[in-house]
Simulated assay, not measured.
Amino acid sequence: MNKIDKTYNLLERISTLFRSEIRLAGIQHGLHPVHIEVLSYLSRCNRLSNTPASVSEYLGVTKGTISQSISLLESKELLEKVADEKDRRVVHLNLTDKGKQLIENSMPPTSFRSPLEKFSEDEVDNLHRLLDTLLNGIQKCNKRAGFSHCKTCVFNSPKSPSEFYCELTKEELPWEDGYLICREHAMCK
């Protein structure tokens, strides 16, 4: 077996196990995997990326699926819709405390957390570097939006240890926001 086939087989098996864990996490709350994925994404994205269109694009599912998912999650009081302050046509999706708690308790699954906790810091850093490189390569091949952390974006200009300036939105943001997923992410050259 060559290295590409072996890598594919390992990632495919990990993905299958992860999807199974997501399915189990959802069953406990009467949710389907896509509902957990919506909540998980919203728990990790910034305020530019918490719209129904962004969720649809990130998950690669139809707008209809996202619309139905949002309605169900709203009825279960796991998220709420909020009109944008500047453009009332834009709707933002915010997790409720109940939604945040559900994701905090179930993602990432213990079966993934436990093995990773046994890795050394160097091993984790190396794994992250390799997976980032793989992800970026796949996104370039598929011509998909970056959806990555602001701290690695070409538009990020550090201002101080506590904040950075986003060249795209023309605003200063707290450094913690650099760890959130942004739809507008552009990889540094």
Rank of each mutant, 00 (worst) to 15 (best):
I4H: 08
I4W: 04
K6E: 12
K6C: 06
T7A: 15
E12Q: 12
E12K: 15
R13C: 10
T16H: 08
T16C: 13
L17F: 13
F18C: 03
F18E: 04
E21W: 03
I22L: 15
L24W: 00
A25T: 05
L31I: 03
H32A: 12
H32E: 13
P33K: 03
I36L: 12
E37D: 08
V38W: 01
L39H: 03
L39S: 02
R44W: 01
N46D: 14
R47N: 05
L48Q: 03
N50Q: 10
T51P: 00
V61W: 10
G64P: 00
E77R: 14
E77Y: 09
L78M: 12
L79C: 05
E80R: 12
E80Y: 04
K81D: 04
D84V: 07
E85F: 13
K86W: 01
D87R: 12
R88A: 09
V91R: 02
L95G: 02
L95S: 06
D97T: 15
G99H: 00
K100W: 06
K100C: 06
Q101F: 07
Q101G: 07
L102W: 03
N105R: 15
S111Y: 05
F112Y: 15
S114L: 15
K118H: 11
S120L: 04
E123R: 11
D125E: 15
L127E: 06
H128F: 10
R129I: 02
L130N: 06
L130C: 06
L131W: 07
L134C: 07
L135C: 08
G137L: 09
K140C: 01
R144W: 12
F147M: 04
F147D: 02
F147R: 04
S148H: 12
N156E: 10
S162V: 10
F164D: 02
C166S: 01
L168P: 00
E171G: 11
L173I: 10
P174F: 07
W175H: 04
G178D: 05
Y179T: 06
Y179D: 15
E184D: 14
